[in-house]
């Protein structure tokens, strides 16, 4: 079952949120150590940084995971563009699927 676009966006947003949380912690912690907490205090400044990075990353990761579809309809570089020695590496269809297709063809005959 191929996940829908919304499903993929949700997974991407969750993943991006987790990444953004970590990045925000690192970057926010660094800037706190370097420039001090400012007027709001340590916890509030760190929390603000973390929330904004989380929002940014989850938004862009959601967009990215929607457009990066892995399904068969994905636009791919045409195999003719590949150098000859690379063509064998570029499996377009997994071998198991090829076997299944062969089996179906044999059954039809």
């Amino acid at each position: 079952m191929e996940p829908s676009k919304f499903e993929r966006a949700k997974v991407g947003a969750m993943m991006g949120g987790a990444v953004g949380l970590c990045i925000g912690f690192v970057i926010g912690g660094y800037s706190l150590m370097r420039y001090g907490p400012g007027q709001r205090g340590y916890v509030d400044t760190l929390a603000r940084t973390m929330v904004s990075t989380t929002a940014t990353f989850s938004f862009f990761m959601a967009v990215g995971s929607v457009i990066r579809a892995d399904d068969e309809g994905r636009a791919k570089i045409p195999i003719e563009w590949y150098h000859e020695k690379d063509r064998a590496r570029a499996f377009r269809t997994p071998p198991v699927v090829i076997l299944q297709q062969l089996q179906q063809q044999q059954q039809q005959q």
Binding site: F59, F60, V63, G64, I67, R68, D70, R74, K76, I77, W81, Y82, H83, D86, R89, A90, F91, R92, P94
Partner: peptide, 28 residues
């Protein structure tokens, strides 16, 4: 196998990154 093999994946990554930035930036 859903990704292109190595030298070619650069082009598809480049295009995917551009699309990601352009679409995300469009909304943003």
């Amino acid at each position: 196998h859903s990704r292109d093999p190595c030298p070619y994946v650069i082009f598809s990554d480049l295009g995917a990154s551009f699309a990601m930035g352009a679409i995300g930036g469009g909304i943003w």
